[in-house]
């Protein structure tokens, strides 16, 4: 029972949100696009001039760009691998009968609520520090040489830290999906003689596919923009060993004040994120109809 009156009211109610988001999207983004075609450095104000595609040419042929692109893919891929495999295993485990399930769940979820700067600094100093970190103590205790994680394997270390933050997210979502698994189907399969492994492969995994896809897509959106963890642990170094695309754009624009180059990089990042976003939007859109 929708009247013309309530339709007008509905339009009015929705417009502030739409106008604000439209402004948030269009104004800064078109400025970024415009800047990306300028020679524009904050250190020499008033010297802006049209540069055509020069910024893109410099950015895309800069060796740092390839390093950053590779690092971004490794970071996203590595964290996804760890969190999806680990999250599935944990979800299956937490779905089993046990004592204190609620408490274990709380313990597993906790890292997700730790702010990125805290988790990065705690891992960097109290665990990975080659002199006083817990890992160094543990290595010494078994007679090994302490390993300097952040200097010798910076990207790997950051992957580890970020995975710790996102494992709870994957676990929680997959656990929610597990709980809608058809128990009777499982029992029927068991009676027909299906073993634990084949039940997992033919019943559990297909059931989780959708949730896993959602986890992968949503995490990818966030993981493409990992920033604070890199800033407080390695500053992108040594060299560009742990610089991702987000950090590279930040360094170019706010550390080197190269607005033009940074903007070109920002647009490249937007295009990459959009490729992922298209898939995610399709999935969510399909779900809206049901």
């Amino acid at each position: 029972m929708v009247t013309a009156h309530s339709r007008t009211a509905a339009r009015l109610m929705i417009s502030p949100a739409v106008v604000l988001l439209l402004g948030w999207m269009i104004i800064p983004l078109s400025m970024t696009i415009y800047f990306s075609f300028l020679r524009y450095n904050l250190l020499s104000p008033g010297m802006e001039e049209w540069a055509g595609l020069t910024n893109y040419r410099y950015f895309l042929t800069d060796p740092a760009f390839f390093a950053a692109l590779t690092n971004t893919l490794l970071l996203v891929g590595g964290v996804l691998l760890i969190t999806v495999v680990g999250g599935t295993a944990l979800a299956v485990l937490l779905d089993q009968p046990m004592w204190g399930q609620g408490i274990v769940r709380i313990l597993v979820i906790a890292p997700f609520f730790v702010m990125p700067t805290v988790s990065a600094l705690v891992w960097k100093n109290m665990f990975m520090n080659p002199v006083n970190g817990l890992f160094a103590h543990a290595f010494k205790a078994v007679g090994l040489q302490p390993f300097d994680f952040l200097s010798h394997a910076p990207l790997m270390s950051i992957i580890l830290i970020v995975s710790w933050q996102w494992l709870p997210f994957a676990t929680l979502i997959l656990l929610t999906a597990m709980q809608s698994l058809d128990q009777e189907q499982q029992e029927a399969a068991e009676m027909d003689g299906a073993g634990v492994l084949s039940r997992f492969i033919y019943l559990t995994i297909p059931h989780l596919t959708r949730a896993i896809t959602v986890v992968i897509l949503i995490q990818t959106i966030f993981l493409l923009s990992v920033f604070a963890e890199i800033l407080v642990t390695t500053n992108g170094g040594p060299g560009t060993a742990s610089t991702n695309l987000t950090y590279l754009v930040y360094a170019q624009s706010l550390l080197q004040f190269d607005v033009g180059g940074g903007s070109a990089g920002g647009i490249v990042a937007v295009i990459l994120a959009n490729i992922v976003a298209i898939f995610l939007m399709r999935m969510i859109g399909k779900n809206l109809d049901t």
């Binding site: 949100a17 970024t32 647009i267 994120a273 995610l280 109809d289």
Partner: peptide, 23 residues
């Protein structure tokens, strides 16, 4: 439905894409 999905798509804009103008 389109409005909802469009709103969501703004969330997928990477922050570095608008860092400089906002700054």
């Amino acid at each position: 439905k389109d409005v909802l999905l469009w709103m969501l798509s703004t969330k997928m804009l990477p922050p570095v894409g608008v860092l400089i103008p906002i700054y």
